Amino acid sequence: MKVIGTISKKLKEKPYIYRIELLDRFEKLLSDKEIVFVRPSTWQDPLENLIFNAKLVKDGKEYHHPVKEKIYSQCWSYEGDSYALWQIYTTKKNDKGEFKRHLGVRITTKLDKLQQISNLNNGDFYYGQVNYLCKYQLEKLPKDLSIIKSLRDTNLNENHLKTLLIKRKSYHYENEVRLIANPIDKLIDKTDNRLCRLKIEPMNFITSVRFDPAMPYKDFKSKKEELIDKFGFRPKQITQSTYFKKNKFVIKL
């Protein structure tokens, strides 16, 4: 798996990244032995995928860049246990279209284990650390000659991919790392071409599992036993976040 852009000293020294999945999706990941990437056009933030989602004009006409349909991505973080990330990544729309918080699981992997994605799947695969820019920096990008030159190229190039590593500074707390794929057609979901499904070996890919802080302790114990008995995880690999634990401090006046 090839690196795009620059990796910080902090991430190099502690090369672990984390992703929060909904509980049912985590269970499906283990049973299907695959992770799901999405087209960046599905990201909710209107300034995500900043360059390709801009209005492109070529020869006086609006232009849809063909590369947009070839790129798939998945978002991870090098931030450890985070209250904000638990809230954001487990709050999804239910069947009624209402936003609701669901139970989640935080999985951990190591940068060198990402090579497994390239080994088990056909296509081109990359990862890079997101660069958070201020508003005035973002406003300069549509006139950046190197970006304009790269967009004139209809073949996928690294400069196209680097545009996916740009985000507004207000999201800096996410400390995001993005995995990016240009997969062969066979890996694209036949029922929804916005998704591609990549094979992994979960027990080698995942280094640790942390369950949702809102999960009742008895349910956590049951899930932990299931991971140990059914999939072979070691007990020390499985913990539960303590963010929602009750305040037990006592202050004597």
Rank of each mutant, 00 (worst) to 15 (best):
K55V: 15
K58H: 04
W76T: 00
V36K: 07
K58C: 05
H65V: 01
E34A: 03
G60C: 11
C75T: 10
S82M: 13
Y63S: 02
A54L: 05
I51C: 05
K55H: 11
P46G: 10
K55D: 13
V38G: 04
Y83F: 13
S77N: 12
K55N: 11
K68F: 04
Q44L: 14
K68G: 01
I51E: 00
Q74E: 13
S41T: 05
S73K: 08
G60N: 14
V36N: 04
C75H: 01
V36G: 06
W43I: 04
L56V: 07
K55R: 15
D81M: 00
I51W: 02
L56A: 08
K68S: 12
H65C: 05
D45R: 08
K55I: 15
W43S: 05
G80T: 15
L47I: 14
S73F: 11
W76C: 07
E34G: 03
K55Q: 14
Y83Q: 13
S82A: 11
N53D: 12
E62C: 03
H64W: 03
N53K: 15
L56N: 01
F37E: 03
F52L: 13
S41G: 10
N53C: 01
E34V: 01
G60I: 12
P40A: 09
K70D: 03
V57K: 12
V36W: 02
A54R: 06
K61H: 10
Y78N: 14
V36T: 07
W43E: 02
E79G: 02
E48P: 00
A54V: 09
R39E: 04
K55M: 09
Y78I: 08
Q44S: 15
I71G: 07
